[in-house]
Amino acid sequence: MTAACGSGEPAGAGEQVTPIRRAPTPDNEFKPVELEATVDRLVTEINASASRPMQMAIVLKNAAGFWAPVVTAANRALGELGVIGNVLGPVASSEDGPGSDELQNQQIEQAVADGAEVLGLAPFNDIQTAAIDEAVAQGVDVVTLDTDVAASKRSIYVGTLNRSAGATAGRTLLAMLPPPPGTVIIHGSIDTAGTSGLERTQGAQEVLQQAGYEVQMRQSNWNDTGETDDVDGMQALLEAADPPAVGMIGLFNISYRCAMAAEAAGKPDLPIVAFDFDPKTVDYLRQGRIKATHIQRQYYQGYLVPYILYGIKNLGLDATKKILAPQMVDGSQVNTGLDVVQADKIDAYNDFLGSIDANQ
Rank of each mutant, 00 (worst) to 15 (best):
Q16M: 05
L338G: 07
N335T: 12
K345Y: 02
I84V: 12
D141P: 05
I58H: 09
K313R: 15
E206T: 15
A57R: 10
V340C: 04
A261R: 11
G14E: 00
G354F: 00
A211M: 01
D330F: 05
G188C: 07
D133G: 12
E263W: 03
K31Q: 09
Y157G: 11
Q55I: 10
P90G: 07
P32R: 01
A73E: 02
D191N: 15
I272N: 03
I186N: 11
S196T: 13
A211S: 04
G266S: 11
N359W: 03
Y310W: 02
F66A: 10
D133E: 09
G233D: 03
A241K: 05
N105S: 08
A130P: 10
A151H: 02
I20R: 01
I254K: 14
A131R: 00
S155Q: 13
A150M: 08
D114Y: 06
M248C: 12
Y300E: 15
A135K: 07
S332C: 08
L317S: 09
I346V: 15
V17S: 13
Q110N: 13
E206C: 03
E227R: 15
V71R: 11
M328H: 08
I108N: 08
H294L: 09
T281N: 11
L173A: 08
Q138M: 11
A151D: 03
I254W: 13
N253K: 12
V71L: 03
A165I: 13
L81Q: 06
Q360P: 14
R289K: 15
K313C: 06
L42A: 09
E117R: 14
K267N: 10
G99N: 12
R171N: 13
N335C: 10
E95F: 02
S220Y: 00
L237R: 13
F352I: 05
M54D: 02
V246S: 06
Y349Q: 12
Q209V: 05
E263S: 13
T2P: 02
D191A: 14
N221M: 00
G159W: 05
V140P: 02
W222V: 13
P179F: 04
A167T: 12
A3Q: 11
K345Q: 15
L42Y: 03
P179R: 11
D27N: 13
L237I: 13
A74R: 11
P244D: 00
I346D: 09
L145P: 08
L121S: 07
I108Y: 04
A204R: 10
E263N: 15
E15M: 04
G139A: 07
A151M: 03
D347K: 11
L35G: 04
D101I: 07
V231P: 05
A262W: 00
L198Y: 04
D278V: 10
Y307S: 10
N62F: 02
G311N: 06
Q298P: 09
P271K: 01
G212L: 01
K31R: 15
P98N: 01
E263R: 15
A116P: 06
M234D: 04
R297N: 15
L177N: 12
A37H: 00
A150G: 13
S155T: 14
L103P: 12
V91I: 14
R163G: 08
V149S: 12
A240C: 02
L81D: 02
V118I: 11
G250W: 00
I58G: 13
S220G: 03
G266Y: 12
G331V: 08
D330E: 14
G188K: 09
P181R: 03
V142P: 01
G166V: 07
E80I: 09
D232K: 14
K267P: 08
C258I: 10
Q219A: 12
V142R: 07
E9A: 14
